[in-house]
Design a protein around this nucleic acid. Structure first.
Length: 566
RNA sequence: GGGGCUUUAGCUCAGUAGGAUAGAGCGACAGAUUCCUAAUCUGUAGGUCACAGGUUCGAUUCCUGUAAGCCCUACCA
């Protein structure tokens, strides 16, 4: 839709040359489409020209002439309202969509630029719970969005596969290995050990000491410790890959903290050489009080490194390997301080690319108002949520469309899609109250609503059975207001993708798809597509196809599949 | 104590980089299917935009303060 805005801005600039007003930037969309497609408010001009804004609007309307693109110009109070020629609008927008069935809205603005995205990044030896969903789906969507815009994207799964927690798991395994059977649901077994460790450690603090011992052995590459750790790691990754596959998520690489535990020492040395490292309470820290931040802990008092220095090493490694233009960290808002510290320390180390690192924070899932805590076993497994959703969809299919082919595949697509969409439609930064009923409701603003609209258009097109030849459509036949609203929603799609990339906010696409489906369904309900009038039918089928194309591409950017039937 | 984020209809949330009568979904109520999938659509009811100041021709939107909720605040990640 940008081109229409450009055109209107150009018309205004022609009438008011020499004005330093940003016509395009000031332009708005009127609250009611009956008022116009675009509006220009005259308040700023009023200030500059020292005339009443209403009068200016009046004068402008008198001077501006409708043309092939703008069919009507109206003054309403202090606004100049523009109506875009329906035929022109439909031809431009729909032709473009129909010519790009697989990549409508894609661009090449990211050519020769690399974006590194750190997302999902769960802890090994802990279950993949619903809390990991947000990073996974937001990151996965951002990856798709940037790729769509022509960027090279490095999707990095930075596993939490190192740290004291492994000392704890190994220690627990050594203490109570008879109580678990790692051949069956190994992750849940490991979690049981982890939870038990914390329970027992409260009674017997010496366990914490033993755990630290084990981790130290790990860092010293003790073979016994290493072998156990490798086993835990392998069985976890195996399970993880299955879940990612279900969600259509792919990573460029599986990395992890363990990869950097040696480099972390080097980073600590660098910090020391730069004179940034100071000793405090037996530990080694970087003093950030000058920047209004608490100290950045680099080495614990027992001499081992912790996540902080590994994060530094990983950041440096990413820059060295990818030369990124942006490095994104899709990590919960709870880690805001930590990441700000990391970026600041990188800057202090003299890396000017530190400013290219961005934290993409998101709100947490809350359970009855509280954060989820693995240590207390207060968790909900993502897999269970997905399974429940799929099962419910199965029932709905039996009830509403028992003759559907490939029921199982469709149930999987719709069930998983519902869970993904329920998450992605939320504004990133806000905490999300975990509400099972809401995730498993499929009416209204949901993933299934979009998929249903898509499937219905598909069967409509099949029923019509006509090849749609773009050059032979008479776009002038799309004169209904409902049709125009659909065309505009299709036209806004590319703008929304770009906005989503700029704001790092997939929910912008999710919300736009909802409004696209809504205006289409309104149209679909008010007018027949297949009519006695051959030419009108063709034009409307073209419109419907454009919506289908937009929905399927949009859903793909969210990681959601669009079944042809449901 | 300090810092960050949040606060809009009964519930869950939008609100386009200050502007025209604040919008959806769910829930409630009333309707639409001889006709392209009713997982849909149409309508009704429901709002001191947390509160108080300030900037502005104009503030739900920007600034300050207050309150509430969540998170962080060195040897977990």
């Amino acid at each position: 839709m940008q081109e229409f805005k450009h055109e209107i801005a150009r018309m205004l600039t022609d009438k008011l040359p020499g004005s330093d007003i940003d016509f395009e930037g000031l332009m708005e969309i009127p609250p009611d489409p009956a008022m116009g497609d675009y509006a220009f408010p005259c308040f700023q001009l009023a200030k500059q020209l020292r005339k009443s804004p209403i009068k200016i609007a009046e004068e402008l309307v008198g001077q501006l002439e409708p043309n092939g693109i703008v069919s009507e110009i109206k003054q309403v109070q202090a606004y100049v309202n523009f109506f875009i020629n329906k035929e022109e609008l439909s031809r431009k927008i729909l032709t473009r969509a129909l010519h790009h069935p697989l990549d409508y809205g894609a661009q090449n603005i990211g050519a020769n630029k690399t974006v590194a995205i750190d997302f999902s990044s769960p802890n090994i030896a802990k279950p993949f719970n619903i809390g990991h969903l947000r990073s996974t789906v937001i990151g996965g969507s951002l990856k798709s969005i940037f790729e769509y815009l022509g960027y090279e994207v490095q999707g990095i799964n930075y596993l939490g596969d190192w740290g004291t927690q492994f000392g704890k798991v190994i220690c627990a395994y050594e203490e109570w290995r008879d109580e678990v059977d790692l051949t069956h649901e190994p992750i849940k077994q490991l979690l049981k050990l982890y939870v038990k460790f914390h329970e027992e450690a409260e009674k017997d603090p010496s366990l914490n000491e033993k755990a630290r011992e084990w981790f130290k052995r790990l860092e010293e590459e003790d073979p016994v410790a290493l072998e156990l750790w490798e086993d835990f790691k392998d069985i976890t990754i195996e399970t993880l890959i299955q879940v990612y596959h279900r969600m259509g998520i792919e990573f460029t690489e599986y990395s992890g903290e363990s990869r950097y535990f040696k480099k972390a020492e080097q980073v600590a040395d660098m910090l020391d050489k730069k004179g940034l490292l100071v000793e405090s309470e037996g530990a080694m820290i970087v003093d950030l009080s000058e920047y209004d931040m608490p100290p950045f802990l680099v080495k614990k008092s027992d001499g081992t490194t912790l996540y902080s220095s590994r994060d530094l090493a990983a950041a440096i490694d990413r820059y060295e390997r990818f030369g990124f233009t942006q490095s994104l960290y899709v990590v919960g808002q709870e880690q805001t301080l930590h990441l700000n510290q990391v970026f600041k320390v990188l800057e202090l180390l003299g890396y000017d690319w530190a400013e290219r690192c961005t934290h993409v924070p998101f709100g947490l899932y809350l359970f009855s108002g509280e954060k989820m805590a693995t240590r207390k076993g207060r968790i909900i497994y993502l897999e269970d949520v997905l399974d429940d959703a799929v099962e419910l969809i199965r029932e709905i299919i039996e009830e509403k469309n028992p003759n559907l082919l490939e029921k199982e595949q469709v149930a999987e697509m719709v069930g998983v899609g519902a869970v993904l969409f329920a998450d992605l439609k939320n504004t990133r930064i806000k905490d999300v109250q975990f509400d099972y009923d809401k995730i498993l409701s499929f009416d209204g603003e949901t993933g299934p609503y979009l998929q249903y609209t898509h499937a219905r258009i598909n069967s409509l097109l099949k029923k019509a059975g006509k090849e749609i030849e773009v050059d032979q459509i008479d776009f002038g036949l799309l004169q209904e207001n409902e049709e125009k609203e659909v065309v505009k929603a299709v036209g806004y799609f590319p703008d929304k993708i770009q906005e989503a990339a700029e704001k790092l906010e997939p929910s912008i696409i999710a919300k736009h798809l909802i409004s696209l489906a809504a205006v289409f369904n309104t149209f679909y309900n008010a007018h027949r597509v297949i009519t006695d009038n051959e030419e009108v039918s063709k034009a409307r089928l073209a419109l419907a196809l454009a919506v289908k194309i937009t929905l399927s591409n949009g859903l793909r950017l969210l990681g959601i599949k669009a079944p042809e039937q449901m």
